[in-house]
């Protein structure tokens, strides 16, 4: 059976055409799935019984409940989903006083191999379909409370651009979920061709994993620097206009003694000169046997103040869900993948 959830309107039109159903049926199906949150074809009661039977012979809505939930002392929840028959992914729900953010995965595992990331250690198992990305939102109990979505979970979103773009189309279209693009942020390590396509085709916010302005250091932390150097990424970003409406932010994990000096501030200011952007400083959440350590809070505050004094709006991201391995860089389903292989 094929899942309908995660299909764009044009894909739904192709399906109904192929089944010999009236073309307006596609809009009806989209309306049921993305507005009325129908979980089965049977619920789509403005389709004739015969047409529902035709659809149900090959298709299902295809939502999948989480397999497990872990809850942090700070209220963060980490949801585990099974995708396909043997792959697992995680999503983190992060409630705050004035908003609730859902951090979704775009791949099972990741190919990018960043030194500081737990997901990298499980290798790459596969891309998520658009429906599998959106299911992380739709199938959690807090679905209606989520105000913001960030593509910052497992995987590199721009290494699965086609499905990420489909999921964004469904999230932001009137025929889809009707979300404002301003409530969605996609984070990338800087795959330049995909960045161009994303900027042109969406209005969602963009976040770039920067972590150091120096080539040698970034290469050590992120192998992607060998393919798309950060200087080239920044040069590309300078061709576009960003504002509060369409925000550009840089994520910067603070590593003790590695990337947290005034020399780094100076180079960051030089590198980002001319860009309307902000920097989000992140404490490093230790992963087993890592040679890296987080900078002390005092130095993180100094770093923020130095950048702010140079005119770069800089925030420090609160660490959430660390006790359940849901914080930034900690998502991993390696143990489950290995168990599945045995």
């Amino acid at each position: 059976m094929v899942s309908l959830y995660g299909k764009t309107l044009s894909e739904l039109k192709s399906i109904v055409d192929a089944e010999g159903l009236p073309s307006f049926t596609a809009n009806q199906i989209a309306d049921w799935m993305y507005h009325h949150h129908a979980e089965s074809i049977d619920e789509m009661t403005n389709l004739s019984k015969k047409n529902r039977e035709i659809l149900a012979a090959k298709y299902i809505v295809g939502l999948t409940k989480p397999e497990r939930v872990s809850e942090s002392a700070d209220g963060t929840k980490k949801y585990l989903f099974l995708v396909g028959s043997n792959r697992y992914i995680e999503a983190a729900y992060i409630p705050e006083s004035d908003r609730a953010t859902l951090c979704v995965s775009s791949q099972s595992g990741c190919k990018m191999g960043c030194l500081f990331c737990m997901t990298a250690r499980q290798g790459f198992q596969g891309n998520l379909a658009a429906g599998e990305i959106l299911n992380q939102l739709r199938s959690i109990p807090e679905f209606t409370r989520v105000t913001n979505i960030v593509y910052m979970g497992m995987g590199e979103p721009f290494d699965n651009l086609e499905n990420v773009m489909k999921s964004l189309e469904i999230l932001t279209s009137k025929w889809g979920m009707g979300w404002s693009a301003r409530r969605i942020t996609v984070s990338t390590i800087g795959l330049i061709p995909a960045i161009k396509q994303y900027i042109v085709q969406t209005s969602c916010h963009l976040a770039i994993s920067l972590h150091t302005p120096f080539d040698e250091e970034r290469r050590m932390l992120m192998p992607i620097q060998n393919v798309y150097p950060i200087a080239d990424v920044i040069a590309e970003l300078k061709k576009y206009r960003f504002s509060d409406h369409r925000r550009l932010s840089f994520e910067y994990i603070m590593f003790d003694g590695l990337n947290d000096t005034p020399r780094h501030v100076k180079e960051l200011v030089r590198l980002l000169n001319g860009l309307t952007c902000r920097i989000n400083l992140i404490r490093f959440h230790p992963i087993p046997n890592s040679p890296l350590h987080t900078s002390p809070d005092e130095r993180i505050f100094q770093f923020r103040d130095l950048l702010t004094a140079k005119g770069i709006f800089t925030t420090i991201r609160a660490s959430r869900g660390q006790d359940i391995q849901a914080a930034c860089g900690l998502l991993s389903t390696k143990a489950l993948q290995e168990k599945g292989r045995k």
């Binding site: 191999g113 192998p223 046997n289 040679p291």
Partner: peptide
């Protein structure tokens, strides 16, 4: 990733490790 972790655990500085990945 696994090789890098082993090298680090054996005392090779991270600054001496350069990686190329397939993607």
């Amino acid at each position: 990733v696994e090789t890098r972790d082993i090298l680090i655990s054996r005392g090779v500085p991270i600054s001496s490790i350069n990686s190329e990945i397939y993607f």
